[in-house]
Design a protein around this nucleic acid. Structure first.
Lengths: 212, 212
DNA sequence: CTTAGTTGCAACATTGGTGTTGCATCTACT
DNA sequence: AGTAGATGCAACACCAATGTTGCAACTAAG
């Protein structure tokens, strides 16, 4: 809880916007309990929508333990709610990447650390993060930015001789994203082990060396 | 067109059911032009729903170039339409696998051929195929069946020394599926090259041999 | 304590999608 | 050519989800 509020302010200063989520109230500060309610709703929405993207506001409200009217009081519309989720998740995502990404660390170390960090976010905010093509230009910018960073990292890995020189960097990134998506569906909670498995698979594949 | 009808009959004999799609007409044979309309609708639905899963019947009908009422005449409900798509795609899928799968061919050859074959179906029927958890038990059976075949193939590959003995077969299959999903999003039409790239990535990864 | 903010509840209006029907027109098949 | 089947169109009923409002009860914060 405390951590969440911290992240809000952190990301607000990063994003340069007043509030991450689109609340109905046109800019007035929310009382502490209301702020908590907003978070509860966002988390419930993620939980419900990741299972059923067509779920109704009623189901989301129920999962959050609030009345449907409360949801509508905090989010102007269904779209606004989803946009808020996307914005929130995107900021978590950006924070996770920025905390681990480094152009100076050895590519392999950077890759492993970023992977573990991103996996944690992806597991909790899978639905919201899958909406990279959002109406919010800020969200699009962050995703494009991270994607660029990712390919840059792979290029550097290629120069260092970690990645094969004959593989297309874009393809490598797509494979990486696909593996993250798949790994995030796992049930265990050991994200470090998961990240290790993921990176190992990404680099070595599942075959023996003498293959082909 | 001709090929489509052929496949229908082929799969009907395989599946053991009267009709693949759930038409409204309770069992009467459709006139040839109506049969074509059904196909057109299924293809349009796939095209539209793969872009927007929440698209309306109106949009589907428009994409198919028919009136909305016609869609409702052929499919009892929205669910029935989607189920029909799933059933159809699943049969294409099963056919593609069965045509290429072999327990006698070298695992690597089998893997490559199945991949290319499945990719072709997946590119055209991505939405319908993503609905593996269908109400239709036949669909679930086929998917479970293919999945089992897949893991069996990987086990065999492990025994032959093509797959590393320390990788979990289930994980290998999940990675394989994830790569197919990702590769199917590509735009080019050279499925053979795509399959080659996919299998190469699956087995060798994107890293150099000396990695780790 | 006081007040402004928050919430639940009940009731309501609205809307977009779904599914149905009747009829006129057209067409595949015999 | 004749007929059963297929389609388009307009009109309708229906419903579930969305979004709104007023009010009473509660509570965080000064």
């Amino acid at each position: 809880m405390l951590q969440l509020r911290l992240e809000v302010e952190l990301s607000c200063s990063l994003g340069g916007q007043r509030k991450g989520y689109e609340v109905v109230s046109g800019g007035r500060a929310l009382r502490a309990d209301a702020e908590r309610t907003v978070q509860t709703i966002l988390e419930a929405a993620e939980r419900v929508l990741s299972r059923n993207p067509a779920a109704s506001m009623e189901q989301i409200a129920e999962a959050a333990g609030v009345a449907r009217t409360t949801v509508h009081r905090r989010f102007a519309s269904r779209d606004a709610l989803v946009d808020a989720m996307t914005a929130w998740a995107t900021r978590q995502f950006a924070t996770a990447v920025e905390a681990q990404y480094s152009t100076t660390a050895p590519p392999l170390v950077a890759l492993y650390q970023v992977t573990a960090s991103v996996l944690r976010v992806k597991i909790d905010w899978g639905f919201a993060m899958s909406r990279a093509s959002s109406a919010d230009p800020e969200v699009a910018r962050v995703h494009a930015d991270v994607q660029a960073k990712c390919e840059q990292m792979f290029r550097r890995a290629q120069e260092t001789g970690v990645l094969r020189p004959d593989v297309d960097v874009t393809w490598a990134r797509r494979v990486y994203y696909a593996l993250i998506h798949e790994a995030a569906q796992s049930d265990g909670d050991d994200t470090d082990a998961l990240a290790a498995l993921l990176v190992d698979t990404l680099l070595r594949g599942v075959g023996t060396d003498r293959t082909l």
